[in-house]
């Protein structure tokens, strides 16, 4: 069973090809880290996969009707937009919209999903706070909780841990890993290669307008890939505490 299959996806914007012929599929129980330098097309790929951008080729999600898609995959955009001063609880409850029929009010199952998401992200003390008054990191956690409340087999999150403190970064990655262990899957774009190496079950590297590598973290974060696509060298070690990855120096940038 696959949760998402993408084949031959080519995305052009303003007559420029951003990504060419990208194919991959995601099964249950995977935490896929989407990595690549700035402008490599991580956000573009996720939006196209979700059907938010026109693209050539096939994405099983984009092919679904909009409502079915919203029950299959949740999306956390990079922009942490909250337009109105609503309470944290109300904001998180928006994640239940795809599960409600027209005119249906929030029920017991929805309430449980909302409470679960609040507990998962440790937001109980914030439940009745106004979302627009939170700090950037707190708001990011609220928006992740909103995505979790949607309770979909697949979660796509665009840089979910940017702006979080180290403890919450690790906690959030563990949470996504926990989803994967429970049989759901997540695709997260991420710049912190150390955290990606430690927590993701699989990495997809984008560069030069294509999918460069797709596999286990140790196989993707090779010295060649790091120099060619990130312009860095790094220290990479396997210890009893897991994979340790530390960027060291910049190379080949002039």
């Amino acid at each position: 069973m696959t949760l998402l299959s993408v084949s031959g996806l080519t995305i052009q914007r303003r007559k420029r090809t951003i990504l060419r012929d990208v194919s991959f599929s995601v099964g249950p129980g995977e935490l896929v880290g989407l990595i690549g330098a700035n402008g490599a097309g991580k956000t573009t790929l996720m939006r196209a996969v979700l059907g938010l951008l026109p693209a050539e080729g096939d994405s099983s999600l984009a092919a679904l009707p909009q409502k079915a898609r919203a029950q299959q995959a949740a999306w956390m955009p990079q922009a942490r937009e909250v337009a109105w001063p609503v309470s944290v609880e109300r904001l998180i409850s928006l994640g239940r919209l795809p599960h409600l029929a027209a005119g249906q009010a929030i029920g017991a199952a929805d309430r449980a999903a909302i409470d679960g998401a609040i507990a998962d992200m440790g937001l109980e003390p914030f439940r009745h706070r106004t979302a627009t008054n939170l700090s950037g990191g707190e708001l990011a956690r609220v928006l992740i909780a909103r995505t979790l409340a949607q309770d979909t087999p697949l979660v796509l999150a665009d840089e979910p841990i940017a702006g979080l403190d180290p403890a919450h970064q690790i906690q959030t990655m563990r949470l996504f890993a926990g989803l994967a262990q429970a049989g759901r899957s997540a695709i997260v774009s991420i710049h912190d290669l150390g955290l990606a190496a430690r927590h993701c079950t699989r990495l997809i590297l984008l560069g030069e307008g294509r999918l460069v590598a797709d596999g286990a973290p140790g196989d993707v974060l090779t010295p060649d890939n790091l120099t060619d696509h990130f312009n860095i060298t790094a220290h990479f070690a396997r210890s009893e505490a897991g994979l340790i990855f530390q960027p060291l120096d910049v190379v080949g940038m002039d």
């Binding site: 938010l52 029950q71 999306w75 937009e81 909250v82 919209l97």
Partner: peptide, 17 residues
């Protein structure tokens, strides 16, 4: 409902169906 979802921005609202 659509306006509620738009609280999160146009992209997120679309992804909410």
């Amino acid at each position: 409902r659509g306006l509620d979802a738009l609280t999160l921005g146009e992209d997120a609202a679309q992804a909410l169906g």
